[in-house]
Amino acid sequence: MSEHRIRVSHQMTTESGESLAEQSSMMVTFHPDSYPLHWESCGQLAEFISHYTGLFFDGQTRPANEAETLHRSEVEDAINYILLELMQNALKFNTAGDIEAKIEIHEGELRFHVGNQIRPEDVPDVEAVFQELLTEDPGELLIRRIEENAADPDSYRSGLGFLTIMNDYGASLAWSFDEDAHPDHVRLTIITCFPVLRSGT
């Protein structure tokens, strides 16, 4: 019998006392084929993980001799936005099977991995979207996309999700395709790295 899974793991580095939150992670797996994943649940998950992860950024776990990390409210705000966008995207485009979300705390950055499944014939289109995001300046692309959307009253795709993640939050984007997924489907995992060290420090 399928069930939703939540896995939390911590490997706090205590030997040196400098990297308390070096490697922690949380993974949530949804099985929409058995239990529908509702749109609202994406927001609830993003909120929960943002508050949970925010506890690592309360000022007490910050390495004393290293660069300053972002304030807890900034980290929670970023997680809430980035994870919601990735989850809503995964739910919107999932064609079969599980949706997985994982967040890892590394030194200096948070890494989000969100995976869903797509049809093999859609892989080239997805790759084209990501290639455009990686080869163009996100700020310029954002303005161009806003202008295109404003010019088309009937457009129903904003295309601003990944762009705002990159432009507004300074996050980087990567992706992988895994063919060992659900039969006749490809698993798409989007990886987003969000820097939590304040720039200039």
Partner: peptide, 10 residues
């Protein structure tokens, strides 16, 4: 969210 941001910018 981004769909709302799109509405605002538009």
């Amino acid at each position: 969210n981004s769909a709302g941001i799109n509405m605002l910018y538009k």
